[in-house]
Amino acid sequence: MSAHITRVNPPALHQTPGYHHITVVAAGRTAYLAGQCPLDAEGRIVGRGDYAAQARQVAANALTALEAVGAGPGDVVRSVIYVVSDDRETLSTVWDALNASPLGGAFDTASTLLGVAQLGFTAQLVELDLTAALAG
């Protein structure tokens, strides 16, 4: 990890499915990634109609963005996952796909998973917003 990061689950709060309620970062540099979309390098939607495929693409794009600033999954201190669905099973599918991806280590930090009505691109089902702590 590039910065001192402490993750906390207070015993008085409910158990989580892998993430932490609180992430504390020592003062330093922070990277705020734009929402990563399920687009390929040419800007085309990947995995039309397939939540897991779109989750894998946003994970790959986010990993590329993190690497561009010298960070990796362990440097992520906050994630917000947007899914076009109000179905709990669909939300779980996306959560599981992200956790199984090479970016999976990013999701043991403070995380929020949201079902939303619509995202920015036609046929877009998943978007991922990350914040990472960077070295000095």
Rank of each mutant, 00 (worst) to 15 (best):
L134D: 04
N61Y: 14
Q36T: 07
V94C: 01
G104W: 09
P11K: 12
A68R: 15
A3I: 05
Q54A: 06
S111V: 04
C37E: 07
V83A: 02
T16Q: 12
V80C: 06
N99V: 05
F121W: 14
D86K: 10
I22E: 13
P102A: 12
G47L: 12
Y32V: 07
A68E: 15
L114N: 05
W95H: 06
R48G: 14
Y51P: 00
P11G: 10
L98P: 10
D96F: 00
G70M: 10
G105S: 10
E89F: 02
A52D: 14
H21A: 13
A117Q: 14
L125K: 00
L130M: 03
L66I: 06
E42Q: 15
E42T: 14
S111D: 04
A60T: 14
P38V: 08
S2D: 04
Y32M: 06
T23S: 09
I22R: 13
S85R: 01
S111C: 10
H4Y: 07
L33K: 03
T30R: 09
A12F: 15
T112D: 05
A53H: 12
Y32S: 07
T30F: 01
L114D: 03
L125H: 02
A27Y: 07
L113V: 04
N9W: 13
A106F: 01
A100L: 07
G136Y: 06
H20A: 11
Y19T: 12
R29T: 07
A62P: 03
R56N: 12
G72L: 05
F121P: 01
H4T: 11
G70V: 10
G35P: 00
T122V: 07
H20F: 06
Q36D: 06
A34P: 06
Q57K: 11
L103G: 02
V58E: 02
V69N: 09
G105K: 03
L66W: 02
P11C: 07
D50F: 09
Q57H: 08
L103N: 03
V25D: 02
S2A: 14
L33H: 03
L33F: 09
D40N: 15
G18W: 08
S92M: 08
A27R: 12
L91E: 01
S92F: 01
P17C: 04
P38M: 12
D50K: 13
A106H: 01
T64N: 11
N9T: 12
L91G: 00
T90F: 00
Q124E: 15
F107H: 00
L119K: 02
L33Y: 05
T23Q: 03
V25K: 02
L63M: 13
S101N: 11
G18S: 11
G74W: 04
L63C: 11
R48H: 11
T109I: 01
V69E: 09
A71D: 03
L134E: 04
G136R: 08
A97P: 08
T90Q: 04
R29A: 12
L13I: 09
P73W: 00
